[in-house]
């Protein structure tokens, strides 16, 4: 989309104007995340440039502190438990919803998707008061249940997406060739939906890993997660250890982003949708 030779002044203004503006917006998006990375290596407890020297003391602080380590462990625990549970529930539901004979698809879908739409604070306060009656507040089980409810819609959506355009005749072909239902699922359905399951699982993990509103209400000091720990840190005293934690989380999100992009391309290739 190069500028043609006959372009006049107005065209040139627009051409460069859009590029400059877009560049600024991209800078706005990415700069805040990149600015904090070097600051986490600051030798002093300041948040300003230029930095007096480099050091790893905030990372040592992060890995040496029992509080941060427990938060990291809790976050990973809730993330993995949520991922497994929501992948199981979400995949089953997506398979059921994709069948043409499923009744009341509209209302059921609306209910299943609702955790993505309802403001988190409503869900968190509702769960806090309701779970208290069942003794689930300040427990690991309560946190896993809550996070799974919030995360499963993502699995349903990603698996449903891999099932759109799914040719049901493939199942009949498998059956007519003598495959039993289990084999059909394992050899035909599963390879088709696997990319959706995995990227849904990643979404589920990130939902749990990043979630803080529900954790504010349901997690006691024993169940504190990384974002919950960061929340307290920001509210009380902004220490550079938070930036070390933030930098590690940025690295983690880059890994997630790359994985999901690769899966998406693979899925599109498998289903014959070219970009």
């Amino acid at each position: 989309m190069a500028l043609p030779d006959y372009a006049g002044m107005p065209e040139k203004t627009v051409y460069y104007g859009v590029r400059v503006l877009s560049g600024l917006v991209l800078l706005f998006l990415i700069a805040p995340i990149l600015v904090i990375v070097p600051l986490s290596f600051n030798a002093e407890a300041f948040f300003t440039y230029p930095m007096p020297g480099l050091s790893l003391r905030w990372y040592l602080d992060f890995f040496g502190s029992a509080e941060w380590q427990r938060a990291l462990y809790n976050s990973l625990f809730f993330g993995i438990a949520t991922t497994l549970l929501s992948m199981f529930l979400g995949t089953l539901a997506a398979l059921g919803l994709a069948r043409p004979e499923f009744p009341w698809r509209g209302p059921v879908m609306a209910l299943i998707i609702s955790p993505m739409i309802v403001p988190l604070i409503i869900a968190a306060v509702g769960m806090f008061l309701f779970y208290a009656d069942w003794g689930l507040v300040n427990t690991r089980l309560g946190m896993v249940l809550a996070h799974t409810a919030l995360a499963t819609p993502f699995v349903v959506i990603t698996v449903t997406a891999t099932l759109t355009g799914f040719d049901a005749r493939l199942l009949r072909a498998a059956a007519s060739l003598g495959a039993n239902p289990v084999t059909t699922f394992r050899r035909v359905t599963l390879p088709m939906i696997l990319p959706g399951m995995v990227s849904g699982g990643i979404f589920a993990f990130v939902t749990s890993f990043d979630e803080v509103v529900v954790a504010l209400f349901l997690a006691g000091s024993e169940q504190r997660t990384l974002p919950r720990q960061m929340w307290s840190g920001i509210r009380e005293q902004l220490s550079p250890t938070i930036l070390a934690a933030a930098t590690l989380l940025v690295l983690f999100s880059i890994a997630m982003l790359v994985t999901v992009e690769m899966l998406r391309r693979r899925s599109e290739r498998l289903r014959g949708i070219s970009q």
Binding site: L29, P32, I33, I36, F47, F209, I234, S253, I254
Partner: peptide, 20 residues
């Protein structure tokens, strides 16, 4: 550049703005 912030933790981004 659009997707990285999308995948980055909300708390990280909020911290970044406080620092900035």
């Amino acid at each position: 550049c659009v997707l990285l912030p999308f995948w980055t933790s909300l708390l990280v981004r909020t911290t970044a703005w406080i620092v900035l």
